[in-house]
């Protein structure tokens, strides 16, 4: 790994100031960035650690029922603290990677990286979450912009994520056993005014909403409503773990399972 300068600010404003220098990069829990730097696929001149910032930690329920999670909150804390208010999200967080990864990896880090096979993007998109940064609030529908691409500007950090809590929700993850990422994962969220379905691990454009399934489930929230619906294999990821056709098929199967589990 190439050498870099390291800073660990104690406040959001200090972190934003520290990130103003050229080639500075924010460091969440480091569970992706550190292995990436070891491979010399990233070599920032400066790392600004966000894990020492108290105001970016924790899980709380707002007056309107929405759940706000600090950007530097580790997955294990979400798994524990969101269990009562948003069980499907807590279950997702509790099944990312392995226990040691969950103790370091953060929700902000996962969403900023936007790995096409990560779990959190599916939860954020299906929940219609709002990504709150030091500068603005970004609706999930505008935030995810393709594989590893997001609406974040240079030096902008995710300070918290606000999740509207659906009436019912479920996440189905088909584990890629070696990496512990999702080979495919589907998050289904049922709100009073409609259903949102987000698929991760499948598309070459990263997480996406399956609008046909959303429309079908909006009028009849049952697995039977999905009969006859299929996702095209075109544009799906193909690698040694699965073909595009396999991933398209798996996404439909997991959607069905998620609906059955949430109903």
């Amino acid at each position: 790994m190439y050498e870099f300068e390291f800073e660990r600010p104690g406040s959001i404003s200090d972190a934003v100031a520290a990130l103003k220098t050229d080639e500075a990069q924010a460091l969440g829990g480091g569970q992706t960035l550190i292995p990436t730097m070891k491979q010399r696929l990233a070599n920032p001149a400066k790392l600004v650690s966000l894990t020492g910032i108290g105001e970016m930690q924790g899980v709380c329920v707002e007056d309107d029922g929405a759940l706000t999670i600090g950007g530097a909150t580790p997955h294990a804390v979400v798994a524990e603290k969101a269990a009562a208010s948003y069980p499907a999200l807590a279950a997702l967080a509790g099944n990312i990677g392995d226990p040691a990864v969950r103790n370091r990896g953060t929700i902000g880090g996962s969403l900023a990286n936007n790995d096409p096979s990560a779990c959190y993007p599916a939860a954020a998109l299906a929940s219609g979450a709002v990504i709150v940064t030091n500068a603005r609030e970004i609706p999930a529908d505008d935030y995810f912009q393709g594989m590893f691409a997001t609406a974040l500007e240079e030096g902008e950090i995710i300070t918290s994520v606000r999740f509207p809590v659906p009436r019912a929700a479920n996440y189905q993850k088909f584990d890629q056993a070696a990496s512990r990422f999702a080979l495919v994962g589907v998050f289904v969220a049922r709100f009073d005014d409609g259903v949102r379905v987000a698929v991760t691990g499948a598309s070459e454009d990263g997480v996406f909403r399956w609008s046909e399934a959303e429309a079908a489930l909006g009028s009849d929230f049952s697995a039977a409503a999905l009969d006859g619906l299929a996702l095209p294999a075109d544009g799906m990821i193909g690698d040694l773990h699965g073909t595009p056709e396999y991933r398209a098929h798996l996404a439909a199967v997991l959607t069905r399972r998620a609906v059955q589990a949430a109903a």
């Binding site: 480091g30 292995p35 790392l47 040691a100 990864v101 370091r104």
Partner: peptide, 22 residues
């Protein structure tokens, strides 16, 4: 592999995936 697991503030973490300064 997890051979490097230690506890930091009581939580199990992989010591190879954390900087000493953290």
């Amino acid at each position: 592999c997890g051979a490097c697991v230690v506890h930091v503030d009581g939580k199990d973490v992989k010591a190879c995936t954390m900087f000493a300064l953290e």
